[in-house]
Design a protein around this nucleic acid. Structure first.
Length: 590
RNA sequence: CGGGGCGUAGCGCAGACCGGUAGCGCACCGCGUUCGGGUCGCGGGGGUCGGAGGUUCAAAUCCUCUCGCCCCGACCA
């Protein structure tokens, strides 16, 4: 490299571009029609992201800055919690995935490919196999534990239907961490450290969130919490209890058995004609009873094609997560119509527990408390009233099988649950030894016995966190980034083009950037209105307006993006003012 | 995978039913004008109408196939 080129590189790597005229920030007045939710629309309009294919995006300079900030906060907090960063490959050999059985089990979401020798590989949707393989090769002794390694890396999950921009992409950036401990107690300590680190991370990112109890799902293990950013656009529903700090995903939330039982005298079973009444609503309308007086019979089929009948009170919803847990299955589904008809039963809508032979019958707790209820008649256009379990049909077990909902009693206090929508930005799992046993990831304990490591895994959707931040922080003009993850701290807006304004802008810019602040200087030859609109759209937390009107009075205008409040300051007081504002934050240094 | 919709200039759309010169707004380029919330005027560049095949004297337009994208559903961390 020539001297000139070297000098050029040094100059230009040490002074990042912060002028609008030089940066690639292609703002749009109109979003593309396909952008559906706020974060997708605004991030596209602000020139932060561009779609390359369904669920696959390019992060433009502005968007990348936000991601880097989130990553930085994550790194700082992960390191603080004793985790160490490494980087695993995007492609993993199929053999590793076959060892845990997930090559077959993970399904179409696992994107597979072959190399030139026709060897199978997959794009990592998560990295338990690769990290566990590393562990078993390198770790021999309990003295090397605990160990917690993380990476920040691009993941690929071939979602059936990618949607919502960065919120549910196929390719996305994720921080995933894996802990290895010598025993369960150690694993719980590692889990707790990550839980605490996650609280710090999302707090520092300026998000309103809630940690909720969650199901372990396909990944396995015994305990997990999801970190939910509260937002109406959330795809998840959570229930929480203000009084006891209890919060859970509705999938997971336990519903206690009803406290009151109906003790009415048993009435004789009667057959009633209910033509065309398939749904709970139709049956209730036809018989003039409340949905809570009805018991619906749902037929589920396990992956092994076993059929099980599930009795749920008419106004309740079944919870397949709980059903899976009871059956010891994953992926139980409502029986298909053709399966039902092959069982030579009544059509869907008229199925009932009475006379249902050769099929297991389980019921939700709530059914146990009922007397003289309505059930399907197992015959077209027929229902039965005054049905009673025990007398008219047997139930294998009563257990918690329904979805929690607002108004249900809290399992942890005597108050009632409330509902909210959330975006899952983080998930911590206590895995146990599922992967370490499958892959013989063992070590010798203090007494010389070989033991399987007790694992935990911990994910944060980095790109999704950025999108969630926008969902939670915007107005009709654009984004309002929380200070720590904003692409820039200050948007410098000369509103007129006089010599005086430009000179002042240059001086303020030098002063602020010299003090380490990130200033986006809109030096374009544009009208003030255009600059204001772009600035509101991009959503830096502070805007600095410099114009001839103000300078005539010796002031510049310092405006908060979130409240719109304006403070008039002499130019030389801008730096201390911003410094005092930013001092309130634990800022990442990207 | 089932149902619905859409592919025409960078973005937003019209034209299609009824085949015959490919249009509008914004953006972009030039000149002038204006300059504190998306100025105004004049001039200009840019499109194999997603792709392939077919019908026809002639296809953005009609037919067949195909690819891509979006929405709803089922599925899922």
């Amino acid at each position: 490299m020539s001297i000139e080129a070297t000098v050029f590189c040094l100059l230009h790597t040490s002074t990042p571009l912060m002028r609008t005229s030089q940066l690639l920030i292609p703002t749009l007045r109109h979003p593309p029609g396909e952008a559906d939710i706020i974060s997708h629309r605004l991030m596209t309009r602000a020139g932060m992201i561009r779609k390359v294919a369904a669920g696959i995006y390019t992060y433009l300079p502005l968007g990348l800055r936000v991601l880097k900030k989130i990553e930085c906060i994550i790194r700082q907090e992960m390191n603080r919690a004793g985790a160490q960063e490494l980087l695993m490959p995007i492609l993993a050999p199929a053999d590793l995935w076959r060892e845990t059985g997930r090559w077959d089990f993970y399904g179409k979401e696992l994107l597979r490919c072959q190399d030139r020798h026709a060897r199978d590989f997959c794009f990592g949707p998560t990295h338990e196999e690769v990290i566990t393989d590393l562990f078993r090769r390198e770790i021999r002794s309990y003295r090397q534990l605990p160990l917690n390694c993380y990476q920040i890396q691009t993941k690929f999950r071939d979602e059936i239907r990618p949607r919502f921009g960065l919120m549910r992409g196929r390719e996305f950036i994720m921080k995933d961490a894996y802990s290895f401990d010598a025993d369960e107690a150690g694993a719980r300590r590692s889990y707790q450290k990550m839980y605490t680190a996650y609280e710090r991370i999302f707090t520092r990112c300026g998000l309103t969130f809630r940690a909720v109890e969650a199901d372990n799902g396909l990944i396995g293990g015994s305990m997990s919490h999801e970190f939910m950013v509260l937002s109406e656009t959330g795809e998840e529903t959570i229930v929480y209890d203000e009084r006891s700090a209890y919060a859970a995903n509705v999938e997971q939330a336990a519903v206690p058995p009803p406290s009151d039982e109906d003790h009415a005298a048993l009435l004789p079973l009667e057959t009633v004609h209910t033509p065309g009444a398939h749904t709970v609503q139709e049956v209730c309308a036809s018989l003039r009873v409340a949905p809570a007086r009805l018991v619906k019979t749902l037929l589920y089929q396990t992956p092994a094609q076993e059929i099980i009948a599930v009795l749920i009170r008419g106004d309740h919803e079944a919870n397949t997560t709980k059903l899976n847990r009871f059956c010891g299955t994953e992926g139980i589904t409502l029986a298909q119509k053709d399966v039902v008809s092959n069982l030579s039963l009544a059509p869907v809508g008229f199925i009932g527990p009475i006379g249902l032979t050769g099929i297991r019958i389980v019921a939700d707790h709530a059914v146990k408390a009922m007397r003289n209820f309505v059930v399907g008649g197992n015959k077209t256009d027929t229902h039965l009233i005054h049905a009673n379990w025990g007398r008219d049909f047997a139930v294998e077990a009563f257990l918690d099988l329904r979805q929690a909902r607002a108004g249900d009693p809290s399992p942890k206090s005597d108050s009632r649950l409330q509902e909210a929508k959330g975006i899952e930005v983080g998930h911590v799992f206590l895995l146990g030894t599922k992967y370490s046993e499958a892959m013989q990831a063992t070590f010798l304990d203090a007494s010389g016995h070989e033991r399987a490591a007790v694992m935990g895994c911990y994910g944060i959707g980095v790109s999704r966190t950025a999108a969630a931040a926008v969902e939670q922080n915007h107005d009709d003009k654009g984004m309002r980034w929380p200070v720590p993850i904003a692409p820039f701290h200050i948007h410098l807006l000369p509103v007129t083009a006089s010599e005086n304004v430009l000179t002042t802008a240059g001086m303020v810019y030098d002063a602020l950037t010299g003090a380490g602040m990130e200033v986006l200087w809109d030096d374009r030859d544009e009208r003030a209105g255009v600059k204001f609109n772009d600035a509101d759209l991009i959503g830096a937390p502070f805007h600095l307006l410099i114009g001839d009107k103000g300078l005539a009075q010796g002031i510049v205008e310092f405006k908060r993006r979130d409240t719109g409040d304006v403070v008039n300051l002499p130019p030389n007081e801008v730096l201390p003012h911003v410094q005092s504002l930013l001092a309130a934050y634990d800022l990442p240094n990207v």
